[in-house]
């Protein structure tokens, strides 16, 4: 008797469990799984939303990899951005976090100031501001001319060799959240380690190299993954600050997906591009995860 009661109770619990997670479960099927499969199917079709999709096999991928020059520009722009901006941003974040971790007065004020750009950085307002700041009549040129007497007015945003750098600078400017994570990590490092190193007469670099860096490596690892994943998705800045130009120098991947899918209504091609991005992100994440064993130090001793 008691057994069946228990089974009944468990069944009731299961029912309740599914009832509670139902909102997510329905959303998962409706807004994630269904679109994923739809997108996978569309990647093999030609589809302009008005007429029904037309199966073309690997046609989109063939076009993408062998004929579409702009597709490769998009990869070049995205990879340049990710592999220049992310490391520089992490370097800044770490440096500033270490500065703030010394006995500094008004720490919370400085912390807030350094975090502020990250707080607003993704907004359209900041993208518009950046475009004007580095425009030919912007404050950047104005500072150059008043400090160094440079009279040439370069539009940093539309010049082919500097457009990408203006966007990288915008990304580096937003080192705030990585900095906060590093700061939290630095607070975890026991001061006794540094004291012991002081007694041994270790210099600044040695302490940094042998204590700070290893103990911070899990945090570094986390920031690196997040930075790369988010870097692949850069969009707003590319659209508003440079609009992909000049000569597709800043035509970021997602910007090109957007252009193809929603300006030219080549939804099949856009889906194929999106899937390649998904697989690339997965591969990069996997690489970082597998190589991390050799350079991330976990205190529990597992190396």
């Amino acid at each position: 008797m008691q057994g069946t009661n228990k089974a009944k109770l468990r069944k009731y619990e299961t029912l309740q469990g599914y009832l509670f997670i139902a909102p997510w479960l329905i959303g998962f099927l409706l807004f994630t799984m269904a679109p994923m499969f739809a997108s996978l199917y569309m990647a093999f079709t030609r589809y302009d939303i008005l007429s029904s999709p037309q199966w073309i096999g690997f046609g989109n991928f063939k076009e993408m990899f062998t004929r579409d020059v702009r597709y490769w520009s998009a990869w070049k722009a995205t990879l340049t951005f990710v592999f220049v901006a992310v490391p520089i941003r992490l370097l800044f974040a770490l440096g500033v976090a270490m500065l703030l971790n010394t006995k500094l007065r008004m720490l919370s004020l400085f912390r807030a100031t350094f975090y502020m750009p990250t707080l607003i950085g993704g907004s359209v307002a900041v993208a518009i501001m950046w475009r004007q700041l580095f425009g030919s009549n912007g404050a950047f040129n104005s500072v150059l001319s008043s400090l160094f007497g440079v009279s040439e007015k370069v539009s940093w945003i539309t010049h082919p060799s500097t457009a990408m750098w203006s966007l990288i600078l915008l990304a580096v400017w937003q080192f705030g959240s990585a900095m906060l994570i590093f700061l939290a990590g630095l607070k975890q490092v026991p001061t006794s380690l540094y004291e012991a190193a002081d007694i041994d007469g270790a210099g600044w670099w040695r302490k940094f190299h042998k204590i700070t860096l290893p103990l911070l490596s899990p945090v570094l690892f986390f920031n690196l993954i997040m930075g790369i994943i988010n870097g692949f998705k850069v969009f707003t800045e590319g659209l508003i600050v440079t609009n992909g130009g000049p000569f597709d120098k800043t035509l970021f991947y997602v910007l090109y997906v957007y252009e193809k899918s929603f300006r030219y209504y080549e939804m099949g091609y856009g889906s194929a591009m999106a899937w390649v991005l998904l697989l690339t992100t997965a591969v990069f994440t996997l690489i970082i995860f597998t190589t991390s064993r050799s350079w991330v130090f976990y205190e529990s001793g597992r190396k």
Binding site: A38, M42, K233, V257, F262, M267
Partner: peptide
């Protein structure tokens, strides 16, 4: 971990 961009097109449709 999924980039939302993969879902954008089918969601839009």
């Amino acid at each position: 971990m999924l980039p939302a961009e993969v879902l954008t097109i089918p969601q839009y449709i």
